[in-house]
Amino acid sequence: MPRFLTDFIQACMDGLLTGALYALIGMGLALIFGVMRIVNFAHGAFLMVGMYVSWVLFDKFQVNPYIGFLISGLFLFVFGYLVYRALIQPIRDRSDFMQILMTTGIALILVDSVQLKFGADYHQTIIDLTNRPPFSFGAFTLNRAALLSFVIAGVFIVGLQQFVVRSRTGQALRAIAQNREVAPLMGINVTMIQGFSFALGIAMAGLAGGLLLPALYLFPSVGEDYTLKAFVIVVLGGMGSIEGAAIGGLVLGMTESITSAYLGQQWALAVDFILFLLVLSLKPSGIFGRQRA
């Protein structure tokens, strides 16, 4: 195989591994923003909390992050539900900007509380798996930990998609998304379901946070970039589409990886945003989106 081709394929594969985690983050926001129409600027902050939960388990109780991430997810589900009931629900029907302000405030509080509790110090989570020689086949190599994260993320992506499409709760959720006035008449407890889906979206961020932990360093403002990235993913995939967000995540991961390989890694984030602006101005329904709801 010629060199340029192997390089390209390698970059794509690396991008897919990261992309699976992006997909998980994006699907969480797709539930909250795409389906529930809550503009959540605290998504990255919740992801950060997920990372800290998993890190504390690792640091204090030697729980492997590949188990700890489940607890992160559960913790954030409960936490997300409480935050929804206390702070989001009261402003549920207010303008987008009030939601943006509120979630920005929540993000600030989360980041600063974590900094006060754990300090601003950088932490890393080294497990045996991350430092092992990579899994290699032919001319290609893949990081084992990233590969494991990819597989786990895949399971949750498919699981969430099936849940939203098939379960009664998922159907109720989509019913509310389609018509919030009629849904209660169909016997749907709107408040409960909305709280539930907000919590579910946050839990996805928590799971992704746990899975990202071995690959990233941890510090209180680690989540900042992920808030914007999550919105980019949702827009790429087409508003309101859970499946679209999954694909959007993979696309974003590959875009970053290819940008790094050919343009330089420092441009990856800028290319994310340029892609976002292009999609918004040229094809606002998203690359794969159906008509916007």
Binding site: M98, L101, M102, G105, L108, I109
Partner: peptide
């Protein structure tokens, strides 16, 4: 801790 007060202030104003 001053940053925390900022976040709390925003939340209170919105509510």
């Amino acid at each position: 801790s001053h940053l925390l007060t900022y976040g709390i202030l925003i939340v209170i104003v919105v509510l």
